[in-house]
């Protein structure tokens, strides 16, 4: 039993069984590595890798005047539905005309919410903030074969023309509802699958089986951070 309130991602047990090394970040037990860093990086750069990034902050903001609120995070281009933008260190995606999804680094969603809340205060119309960090898992598929693997699980067209970097689509992945975000790590294609927490373990295992021939390698959060900074 844990003595301190510990936050566990839905992949915690699977990662533990796979021999992952864990780190504590903002109360989260996160799988930092599954294999030596060089192996994980090579897998992501040459084939495809799967990472559990469920601890990333996730926030839904909704309302008819939501666009004004979002501007509090920085100068953002006008986003069409399905388009995203970086507002470093956060990423913002427009899901509907009146709804945005915000991805933050671990533990920063609270501060973002406060910032947006302040921006929403003067507005008359209803703005709703829903933190979904705990309710949604976030699995990342990274690497040149990530799209190939996704095409075995999802009917969307993952070609660059149709699904460019910083875009969002909602679809079925392995028969589960997922919000799919394209968030390349430098030149490396990367897709975040954001879906129900309860289905995440199933999805993780299904992806690992589906990508066996590529081959797929589970990687830790540390490798994702390294790839982000390459």
């Amino acid at each position: 039993m844990m003595n301190e309130p510990g936050k566990l991602t839905p992949i915690f047990t699977l990662a533990q069984k796979s021999g992952a090394r864990f780190e504590l970040r903002d109360g989260w037990q996160i799988a930092a590595a599954f294999a030596p860093s060089a192996i994980e990086q090579a897998a992501a750069q040459q084939h495809v890798a799967l990472a559990d990034c469920s601890a990333n902050g996730k926030l839904i903001v909704e309302g008819t005047q939501v666009e004004k609120v979002i501007q509090a995070l920085g100068e953002l281009p006008e986003l069409a539905i399905g388009q995203g933008a970086a507002a470093s260190p956060h990423h913002i995606f427009r899901l509907r005309q009146d709804q945005f999804f915000i991805s933050t680094p671990i533990g920063e969603e609270g501060a973002v919410q406060e910032q947006l809340h302040a921006a929403a205060a003067p507005l008359v119309s209803l703005i709703t903030f829903t933190p979904i960090t705990h309710g949604r898992a976030e699995l990342w598929l990274v690497g040149p074969q990530a799209a190939e693997l996704l095409s075995r699980l999802c009917g969307l067209d993952f070609h660059d023309q149709q699904f460019p970097n910083l875009s969002a689509r909602q679809s079925s992945v392995a028969k589960t509802r997922q919000l799919i975000l394209r968030r390349d790590l430098g030149q490396l294609p990367a897709y975040a699958l954001i879906g129900g927490r309860s289905l995440a373990a199933y999805l993780w295992e299904t992806i690992m089986v589906c990508g066996r021939d590529l081959p797929i390698q589970p990687i830790g959060f540390s490798t994702i951070e390294k790839l982000l900074n390459l």
């Binding site: 039993m1 844990m2 309130p5 510990g6 936050k7 566990l8 991602t9 960090t133 705990h134």
Partner: peptide, 15 residues
């Protein structure tokens, strides 16, 4: 409670 705290709280209540 937030789902990520679920196991911790469950075990804490049982204890």
């Amino acid at each position: 409670c937030p789902a990520s705290y679920g196991l911790y709280l469950w075990q804490t209540i049982l204890a």
